[in-house]
């Protein structure tokens, strides 16, 4: 699980162009859409792309994403739960 979380952080940085961050800057329980990272609804769409392209997981309705994208913890839990 912790390996998955580190991998996710690297993928988030790449997908969202967060060039000035390192994986260590993103804490597992930090709200991704909180003030620290300043992400918005466009980034939420990029998360959907990230999940499909790296994990084959589909989210068809952007509003479903709110809880899933809350933090690295919740993203990892979603991936674990839905792994084939």
């Amino acid at each position: 699980m912790s390996e998955l979380k580190e991998q996710l952080k690297a993928q988030i940085i790449e997908q969202l162009n967060l060039e000035n961050l390192t994986p260590a800057d993103i804490k597992n329980d930090m709200p991704l859409f909180g003030e620290e990272l300043g992400l918005d609804s466009i980034d939420a769409l990029e998360f959907i792309v990230l999940l499909e392209q790296n994990y084959g997981l589909k989210i068809t309705n952007p509003s479903e994403g709110k809880d899933i994208f809350f933090s690295v913890d919740s993203l990892a839990a979603f991936i674990e739960k839905n792994k084939a």
Binding site: Q15, I42, L45, E46, I48, V49, E52, Q53, K58
Partner: peptide
């Protein structure tokens, strides 16, 4: 090739 596309460049 996947079903979803990154939207930022389009926007």
């Amino acid at each position: 090739t996947s079903d979803v596309l990154s939207p930022t460049a389009f926007i």
